[in-house]
Amino acid sequence: MPLLSYRDALNQALREEMRRDPAVFLMGEEVGVYQGAYKVSRGLLEEFGPERVVDTPITELGFAGIGVGAAMAGLRPVVEFMTWNFALLAIDQIVNSAAKMLYMSGGQVPIPIVFRGPGGAALQLAAQHSQSFEAWYANVPGLKVVMPSNPADAKGLLKSAIRDNNPVVFIEGEMMYNTKGEVPDGEHVVPLGVADVKREGTDVTIVAHAKMVGLALKAAEEMAKDGISAEVVDPRTIRPLDVATIVASVRKTNRCVIVEEGWPFAGIGAQVVDDIQREAFDWLDAPVLRVTSADVPMPYNKGLEKLAKPDVPKIREAVHRVLYRGG
């Protein structure tokens, strides 16, 4: 299988879907002439022209709404936010327009649209450019929320998102665009709502999504040397959440740690804990613990930033606690 970067896997998905369906178009800031702020759309303007690769002014509310309106009139827009931080300006269109249109129209007006772009913490970008919004969008009925953790999933999930007849919030890892991995050529579609067990284990389940999957795998690898067998479950889609796969893993390992890059209060992990306590209560041998970012805006200082973010030692510590092991 070819080795591709996360960035190029996304590019491949966009290119293949735009070739497959003329109703698919890409719109956003710097997606065309500039070739994408993170080069995800490299070469698409040259292949598909300015009608289908549309550079917008810096006007998130406006172009997000234009995307939703285009979907109402039969197109399948892919709206790129340069980062999800800027999408707050457009959240009215995502929540009040895209998510609710089908319902409030009594099923008449579906919104097949993908809102995509990088999210999560980056490096020393401080409070306004380093944050995770999946918990916000996952709270909204009518939206799907997808967060790929590797290049193959990035391609397969984006293809599914573009083909889906609902609004999909597709959050890419700002720090993962250069990550390389094997990506199947051509028709590689990963269904939404299906988790993936990234590493099998028997002692503890680590539920992690997006960039946190890499940390969880690294922690699992290190802990294997200490005789701890950790299973890593990547939900891949936050909404709809594949509760069955998570619960099956917890029923097997009897212990669980949930890792996310967002804030702790009302985070994704809180939802997963709720599902686990209802579906696997009798199987638990320890309270479920969560590793999250600190409950603060992201600081600029490198040392403070490191303290704020989840990392391998924090995951190991949580695993040790659910295993009641010292050190």
């Binding site: 509310l61 406006g62 172009f63 997000a64 709404g65 234009i66 995307g67 939703v68 309106g69 285009a70 979907a71 109402m72 009139a73 039969g74 197109l75 827009p77 009215d92 269109q93 009040n96 327009s97 249109m101 409030m104 129209s105 007006v109």
Partner: peptide
Amino acid sequence: LGGHAIVGGHIPLATGAAFAI
């Protein structure tokens, strides 16, 4: 294509419909 209840929020939607046309 609807009555919409956020003041101004549907103006981009109609613009998008024009884009689609």
